[in-house]
Amino acid sequence: MHVTPSRFSLIRAYSKAQILEQLRIPVAVISSVVFPSLVFLFFVVPQSSVTQDPLMSLESIAQLAMFGVMSAFLFGYGIGVAEERANPWSSYLRTLPVGPVPGSIGRALTAMLFSCLSLLPLLILGAVLTTAPDAFTSGTLHWWRLPAAILAVLICGIPFLAMGLTIGYLCTSKVAIALTQVLFFPLAFAGGMMLPPFLFPAWLNSLSLLTPSRSARDIAVQILTGHGLTAQSIPVLAGWTVLLVVLALWANRRDQGRRFR
């Protein structure tokens, strides 16, 4: 008797396959895990004016956490999906009558798992090399903000995951590499992840507030430190998330339809 697998079992199978595939390339996993921590060591730790201020330290940790998640999602899935489309096994999987949703959700869950792992060394370094813990031990901030900020960073990374998937499904691997680089660095800069937004000129700040990277950064900083959120941060990020998720699903169906129908 033929039994149709449930949607949950399909998502679980796709997630397991994605996790095992990532683990087969240890260098890729290690690089994505240590990247935010290296940036923290080279660009934040040498600034004593930042490390000696608990709130500024936390702000730096929050925006670098968002920087790392955005980098992992865009590069890992923008380029990774494009390369997989040229793989015969991937092409076979795309012919199966399961639709794009289980595979897309499986990729998202895998991306969040490894991004969460990349946040752990960053948090440890922040606790050891800065005065960030003083904000919690002194009673200025509550400890619930820490796990809430980790969850927020992962959720705020969803539009960048969708952006990466859209690029991967629409472009060849060579085009995906170039396009991902072209998009990532301007988004990271405009989002205040390389330079604090208070240093922006007025015109750049106004433009920055319309980007998903700035909204994601401000939400992460707000949850961790209690300040930094603007009125448009949540609506802007929600709008970009819906738009990019719809584009990712459309790109998946378009690619499958062009090649297998």
Rank of each mutant, 00 (worst) to 15 (best):
S213D: 03
V50C: 05
S104I: 14
V29K: 00
T110P: 03
L123V: 08
F8D: 07
A28R: 00
L207C: 15
Q63R: 15
P26C: 10
C116E: 09
L38Q: 07
P121D: 06
V153Q: 08
Y92S: 12
L120A: 14
L119D: 01
F200L: 04
F184H: 07
I155P: 00
I234G: 01
G191N: 08
F114R: 05
P159L: 04
F200A: 00
L187T: 03
P159W: 06
A72P: 08
C156E: 01
T95P: 02
F160L: 08
A149Q: 06
R12C: 12
L204W: 05
P212E: 09
V245T: 08
P36Y: 01
H227C: 14
F67W: 11
Y92P: 11
V175H: 04
L10V: 11
R258D: 00
P212Q: 01
W250S: 11
I11R: 00
V39Q: 05
E21N: 14
R85P: 10
S173I: 10
H227Q: 13
D134T: 01
L249A: 09
R261Q: 12
E83F: 14
F136S: 12
I124Q: 03
M193G: 09
I167N: 06
R85H: 13
M66Y: 06
P159G: 10
P159K: 08
Q47Y: 11
F185Q: 06
L187I: 00
A72N: 14
S138G: 01
I79H: 02
L96C: 07
